[in-house]
Design a binder for these strands. Structure first.
Lengths: 191, 191
DNA sequence: CTTCATTTTCAAAATATTCTGAAATCTGTT
DNA sequence: AACAGATTTCAGAATATTTTGAAAATGAAG
């Protein structure tokens, strides 16, 4: 029943740096619609770089057990942290993915699945609505037909754009396709 | 005092398609932390493809005058819609940018300025904190030094990643650099 | 300077989101 | 089966965000 293997008196500067990192990540999260505590928990696990249990997270971040539990679960569902078991400890531990590019790919994949794919589907459905109303041959003259035509052109443009986003995402998500490569190519064109 | 030049009885299907577009855009906006009515106003102006005044927007979207005013202003500030004046009408009109790539670039530029730049700055400041604590020559042995070292490695990795995002953004924002080109390159590698 | 149409502002209200905490559930042990 | 530590759940509380609406400001015209 060894309560604490090591009290570990952390360097105050390191402590401060960790808190700053958590704060900055939390701030960034809020710009992206990520709940404060979700971003904070992820930041903490990332910056600590070692598995932590629910109580440690609660204590460091001053959040409730319920919040910690839900947030950890949701991060696991997103696939950016994973559960680990420490032998001799009944508690569950969590650790964050340390490969930043992998993290990026996982987030991109999830967001595409949850946001881009449904958007594309809705856009296509929306486009379908006015497909048959297309000015078949009775062109010009009719102002209503012209209105539909320009409307369709706008929807098509947007559809094209979102399709491209979809395509790019797929390339970036691909386990093989290196995000770094793309960046390198862009750099080439920079000069 | 010609009240209405044209009552313009819109095709019900077209009307429906417009509403769907507005709804889908609004949905997408909420995924990105954009207020519902802001996304709706933008969607309406985009899909109508013509300048509209505040009252038209209020009426179509069922929002209050105050909300319409603030939202329109904020969209103008973001640079994705612009004010236009219609001769013979004292009301102000607004029209949305119709070039989707331009729209994309403007949004990217703004978000980078508001989010990425401050994030980079904070990250650098955070990194500075533990810069002098670097394990100069007394390597190994000291566990506290190793802790700092691995912490610094994590911050550096993240810094590198965000710097790359910053760089890519700059390329995409550039009025000359074509977003389409990048996409094309990615496509090449797809086969 | 006054009027009137229009736009902006902002405190309060409405709405939406996030967090808490204690009860319920789960899980391995005796 | 009963217990005990650990985890999950979820209704309600706390927070945060967005919208409203009416008063104030603006500004063009007489």
């Amino acid at each position: 029943m060894a309560k604490r293997p090591k009290p570990a008196p952390t360097d105050p500067t390191l402590q401060e740096a960790r808190e700053r990192f958590v704060a900055l990540w939390s701030q960034m999260g809020s710009n992206w619609g990520v709940p404060r505590s979700m971003a904070e928990v992820h930041a903490l696990l990332y910056i600590m770089g070692r598995p932590m249990n629910t109580d440690e997270v609660m204590e460091q971040l001053h959040i409730s057990r319920g919040s910690a539990s839900m947030t950890l679960r949701s991060l696991v569902e997103w696939g950016i942290i994973s559960r680990v078991h420490m032998r001799g400890d009944r508690k569950e531990y969590f650790q964050a993915e340390q490969d930043v590019w992998k993290l990026f790919r996982v987030i991109l994949r999830e967001r595409k699945k949850r946001e881009v794919d449904p958007l594309l589907e809705s856009l296509r459905a929306c486009r379908e609505l006015t497909a048959d109303k297309e000015p078949s041959r009775s062109r010009k003259i009719d102002p209503a037909a012209a209105e539909i035509e320009s409307h369709n052109a706008r929807v098509d443009t947007m559809l094209e754009f979102v399709s491209m986003i979809d395509l790019i995402s797929r390339q970036l998500i691909n386990p093989s396709g290196e995000g770094l490569d793309i960046a390198a190519k862009l750099l080439d064109r920079a000069s």
